[in-house]
């Protein structure tokens, strides 16, 4: 495993720790999109169905279990925890899951590397992950006050995929990996979706101002 891949996984893990900290310590999920969190559960469940079938490494298995467990518990807190659920911005988090899930599923059926259950689900999870942040970005745009934790959470999520892009470049040139258009292009799209957010995040950080996205 190269340094970029590790950095990507660690920023991903850190983003989840940050969100769980907000939920557990501050008892708040204000500014967090439940739609996006539910999409992540679907992403992880469909991608990690191979967990029980194929063993890659101890690291790999542990990380998969952590991502599955944390994403499910975040959704649980936002839906059912009696204090946390009251901080959820239900009225502004209106993006419909199905508009993302259905096209991604159809695309995975049409464009995949092999027409098998595992491969189609894996491809679907990549397509869905690429766009899963959209409800969260819409929610941020509609929020007047974005607290630091939420801003940092989204920034780390974006940084995670940017590190993966570097990881793929490294694997291609240094480790002689094959060309893999499906994960590369969906990963590139996923990172590109954050471009606008990155711009305003860095600008607010440089000017020491509170983060605010233009509507």
């Amino acid at each position: 495993m190269n340094a970029f891949r590790l950095a990507g996984d660690m920023t991903h893990l850190l983003s989840i720790i940050l969100l769980l900290h907000k939920i557990r310590a501050m008892k708040s999920c204000a500014g967090i999109s439940l739609r996006t969190q539910e999409l992540y559960v679907i992403v992880f469940v469909t991608r990690y169905v191979d967990l029980s079938m194929k063993y890659y490494s101890f690291y790999n298995s542990i990380m998969k279990i952590v991502f599955l467990g944390t994403s499910i518990s975040i959704v649980w807190y936002m839906r059912y925890h009696k204090v946390v659920k009251q901080t959820y911005n239900k009225d502004v988090d209106t993006f419909r899951h199905i508009f993302l899930i259905l096209p991604c599923f159809v695309l995975a059926l049409l464009i995949n590397r092999a027409f098998t259950v595992i491969e189609v689900l894996w491809t679907f999870s990549l397509y869905l992950e690429a766009v899963a942040i959209l409800p969260q970005l819409v929610l941020l745009q509609r929020s007047r006050n974005i607290d630091n934790l939420t801003g940092n959470y989204v920034f780390l999520l974006g940084a995670y995929r940017a590190f993966y892009l570097l990881n793929w470049i490294y694997r291609f040139f240094i480790e002689n990996h094959q060309v893999r258009w499906i994960p590369w292009l969906s990963g590139l799209l996923q990172t590109a979706i954050y471009a606008d957010f990155f711009y305003y995040y860095i600008k607010s950080w440089k000017n020491r101002e509170k983060l605010k996205l233009p509507a």
Partner: peptide
């Protein structure tokens, strides 16, 4: 020249 599959990623 291909080695491991992308499925080893998270």
């Amino acid at each position: 020249p291909s080695k491991a599959d992308m499925h080893d990623e998270l």
